[in-house]
Design a protein around this nucleic acid. Structure first.
Lengths: 331, 331
DNA sequence: CTGTTAGCGCATTCAA
DNA sequence: TTGAATGCGCTAACAG
């Protein structure tokens, strides 16, 4: 490996001048800068990050711990958002994928500490509560798409209730008055919040709750897995409740419902409204007709979390999105 | 930050002994090891990776450049596979997500070089040809799920033709004799290879090609986007060609076809076979009945690529999966 | 604007 | 089995 000294000799300057050029120090005469840059190119010099990190006070490295997050396409947006800000601010972003095992998380945290990472985003696959290792208290840390069991870390999470209210508002504004909400299983945080939001919207508009039907369509199985009954439920709800709009809590569900509605199209008419929480990027395109979506763009969470870390501010601007930041005096 | 020297003072040994303990050098007396470990724990010492890397000859860091790969769930398996091997062999794996822009790739490569990464996996979102920067010639590099335009890097890619042959073999073994293959657009590499494989299987078994219908169901739009006509095609094919089995080139397509078959179930009977290339992990569960899948487990590609890098061998064991390794004398 | 000196935290070498 | 000296490649602090 070619070092800064070899470049210096080649360029006929001191190695400190080379260092200055590499670090964009403006106090170098143009002629010397040229010589150095030429030498760097000719020798194929690359700064050694490890050596530089030993002397620099800040590592400039941030990390995102992705709790098997990458396996779900829409939550990958959290990483993309974080990366966007990191690059913008000239920081390195370490992506650490961990699975649910404590061993892999511990190993990730160990790496973080050894690399002297300056800030950490801990993110989860779906909106839920997590237990965060105390070890992370040593580094500025913020959670994204999850919140801490012990209430001891700041976090940015979807405002499910607001999203539920917004999407229902939108349907009501379009003139729909009898709405079925096919919700996720209510033990899921997202489902709980959205349900409350939907109800709030109905109340706010002075509509009778008799015209609102809320049903869970995810059923837990004996073996711990879950199945969706959205197809059957939608068919039954359309027949029996006769809604003029349906809200879907889940897009794959929405996809299925699309077909149900399509089949039933001859019966209930084509003007049934479908509203969907737009977690999955591409699917709504399939559902163009009559579709209202409530975007929960996860990249905003990633961006937000990263800004919070880098700028160490709690007064982040409002994103006018259904997210909320729960800040704490943790760093 | 607490350093190795502070630990040494605290433990009453020289800092070199601490270094030995940290690096699992067996030539340390147990009693001293205990003292050191105790001191490390008490002071919360963490080795400084940067400092250690300046002296060590090998960085132990590998990297995977993910070409917007993370946005597709099944290709994330490539990363998971690579990580599995890396962890197993006690290597760090840097995940570098890049988008299609040259700037982001260049930046990633710059990082690689500065971190003195020992090996690189360059992976793409879908099986295709890529142009790899010459810069990567300086580091052992292997491509995964893509192949180099200039034929100058080793790569591991799905053996689409073998997969096509295997899946057709499987259907024929089950007794199906009249098969429709709803393929991806034929300009896609995967589609081309699979088609050939399907035909080969038919010929191999001495079946008449009249009983084989192959159709592209992905149509390019004027605006560059693509739409799937699988639903309509499947409906028509079922009516007109009357296959006793359908091979789907794509799982989302398979999902849609499931409904088609389901709708038509009353007409053509439940014994229509469905075979699918299993790129997407979860969807096949929805398709249990009559489903044959040909797994293209991307994690195997990740594992394979990583083994190739770490062990620097070209004689990787055969994985009995439809993948092929194209090795070159590049490192 | 440039160069010299010092030293980051650690591993290597070699002597004890 | 341990420790002292040395230096990795670089940046900080200062002097010129």
């Amino acid at each position: 490996m070619v070092t800064i000294k070899q470049v210096a000799v080649h360029a006929g300057v001191s190695f400190k001048t080379v260092s200055r050029v590499v670090n964009n120090d403006p106090t170098v005469k143009d002629i010397n800068r040229e010589k150095v840059l030429k030498a760097i190119k000719e020798l194929g010099y690359r700064p050694n990050r490890a050596a530089s990190l030993t002397r620099r006070k800040n590592s400039n490295i941030y990390a995102i711990i992705a709790d098997e997050l990458l396996s779900v396409p829409y939550t990958f947006d959290i990483i993309r958002g974080a990366q966007e800000i990191a690059w913008q601010k000239n920081k390195e972003l370490l992506i650490l994928n961990v699975n649910e095992t404590q061993a892999s998380i511990d190993r990730a945290i160990e790496s973080l500490l050894e690399y002297r990472v300056e800030g950490v985003i801990y993110s989860a696959m779906y909106h839920r509560q997590v237990v965060v290792a105390d070890e992370l208290k040593k580094i500025p840390t913020i959670l994204a798409n999850c919140f801490p069991a012990l209430n001891n870390f700041p976090c940015v999470v979807p405002d499910e209730q607001q999203a539920g209210e917004d999407i229902t508002d939108a349907l009501i504004c379009k003139g729909y008055r009898r709405i079925a909400f096919l919700n996720l299983n209510e033990h899921i945080i997202a489902a709980k919040g959205r349900k409350q939001g939907v109800i709030n919207s109905f109340k706010k508009h002075g509509l009778p709750l008799d015209d609102l039907l809320i049903e869970s369509v995810i059923i837990g199985q004996a073996d711990g897995s879950e199945i969706s009954t959205s197809r059957e439920s939608a068919a039954r709800v359309i027949d029996e409740f006769k809604p003029d709009a349906i809200i879907c809590g889940q897009d794959p569900m929405a996809l299925e419902i699309y077909f149900v509605v399509h089949d039933k199209g001859m019966i209930v008419g084509k003007d049934i409204g479908i509203a969907s929480f737009d977690d999955w990027g591409s699917i709504p395109q399939l559902l163009q007709p009559n579709l209202t979506t409530m975007a929960l763009p996860h990249h905003a969470m990633g961006r937000w979390a990263m800004e919070y870390l880098i700028d160490q501010r709690t007064d982040i601007v409002h994103h006018s999105l259904p997210f909320k930041l729960i800040a704490r005096d943790s760093f």
